[in-house]
Design a protein around this nucleic acid. Structure first.
Length: 396
DNA sequence: ATGTAC
């Protein structure tokens, strides 16, 4: 089916899908090189990009970023903004792993400093951070009361419980705490699944790696983020909201399937189940999703804490001695209410990002001041698009 | 991605 999706070349890495189907409200915009594009033509990726273009209230484009591939409803790499009132919010535009994301931690060590202790360190981390399908912590389980606090307070909860340093907070998207989180909108099943999984990695493409800086492209930018030299050791953590977010997604997909009937929404694919933005169903999903967003922030924060503890154990020194500063924690599966200029007017929109990291426009407060007000960080795809600033997720 | 499976 997707073999028939027409593509217009904009440049070597940008392809436009015209509104060739009567139901398409906007064109598609696909960012891919030849090789990736060819792969997309063998599966449902482009067809899913076209399906997203049918969503009520969608603005400007249905976007697919590298490395776009098949997902549930939206393709992974899918980005769409829909009108807050006239549009819809769709859990398929976020995915099952709500606030799957990545954080980078720097150290002041070089490869040669760490090499002799590497095996020991890897073992310590392996002990301290459970991984794999269904991984749980027996040593650290939160009560239902704690869970309900942490999904509202986000990283603040972790810091208050000794699971990090206060300066970590400002190095998170949303300062590690999404507002509107409401645990009353989360099922007991989801809460129960969440109790034993704080500080666990999970499986699939989730990872915790000890890395070294291979090459610095922009010295000034790198320095402001604490990347000083090639060979510097860093740590990267990629994971999400575990069974908690997964359960919330499946619970609300059911709610949204009913909403599609109730509000008589025409959709090309039932995996795009959604609700009009100004309904209770939309509000409930958003409040529950925000809980999973905060859960995932706390999960990555807690994992980082146990990495710091592992350094302390292996080197028998305070972790501060090794730097171990958080550069940034960023989500790539999330929906947010944002205001953007669209075709010259201020619009409140639902931004769906699935496998798409936010990048910062010039002047964004999260850009280190020393980089100057004209600097944008990460690749600003948005300049081509007019109002959305997005970046491809880190690929593996 | 995820205890699984409408």
């Amino acid at each position: 089916m997707s073999g028939k999706v027409p593509l217009e070349k904009i440049d070597d890495y940008t392809w436009r899908i015209p509104q060739y189907k009567p139901g398409m409200r906007v064109p598609g915009m696909v960012f891919a090189n030849r090789e990736l594009l060819e792969k997309m033509q063998t599966d449902r990726t482009l067809g899913q990009c076209v399906n997203v273009a049918h969503l009520p209230g969608i603005y400007k484009y249905s976007i697919t970023l590298p490395d776009g591939h098949e997902g549930y409803g939206f393709p992974i790499g899918g980005v769409a903004a829909t009108d807050y009132n006239e549009g819809v919010i769709s859990p398929g535009g976020v995915g099952y792993d709500i606030n799957c994301g990545v954080r980078l931690v720097t150290t002041n060590l070089s490869e040669q400093d760490i090499r002799p202790k590497l095996a020991q360190l890897a073992n310590a981390i392996f002990q301290n951070v459970p991984c794999g399908l269904g991984s749980r912590r027996k040593d650290f389980r939160v009560s239902v009361h704690d869970l309900e606090r942490l999904v509202v307070e986000g990283v603040h909860w972790a810091i208050d419980h000794g699971l990090g340093w206060s300066e970590d907070i400002k190095h998170h998207e949303e300062q590690g705490c999404m507002k509107n989180a409401n645990p009353d909108k989360v099922s007991t099943t989801a809460k129960n699944r969440g109790l034993t999984q704080i500080g666990t990695l999970g499986s699939g493409n989730h990872f915790l790696e000890i890395q070294k800086v291979d090459e610095i492209y922009d010295e000034r930018a790198a320095k402001s983020f604490g990347i000083e030299h090639e060979g510097q050791v860093t740590i990267m953590i990629h994971c999400g909201s575990r069974g908690f977010g997964h359960q919330i997604c499946s619970d609300y997909l059911r709610v949204m399937e009913r909403a599609v009937q109730k509000y008589k929404i025409a959709l090309p694919d039932r995996e795009l189940a959604c609700a009009p933005g100004n309904t209770k169903e939309a509000e409930d999903y958003y409040q529950a999703m925000a809980c999973a967003v905060n859960y995932a922030f706390v999960n990555r924060q807690t994992i980082m804490h146990w990495v710091r503890e592992s350094f302390k154990h292996v080197f028998r020194e305070d972790p501060e001695r090794f730097g171990l500063n958080l550069v940034y924690d960023v989500a790539h599966n999330i929906a947010k209410i944002e205001t953007h200029m669209v075709n010259g007017e201020r619009r409140k929109v639902w931004v769906h990002r699935k496998g798409a990291t936010r990048a910062f426009p010039p002047g964004h407060p999260d850009i280190p001041a020393e980089l100057g007000s004209q600097c944008s960080y990460l690749e600003v795809w948005g300049q081509a698009l007019g109002f959305l600033w997005v970046q491809r997720k880190p690929c593996r």
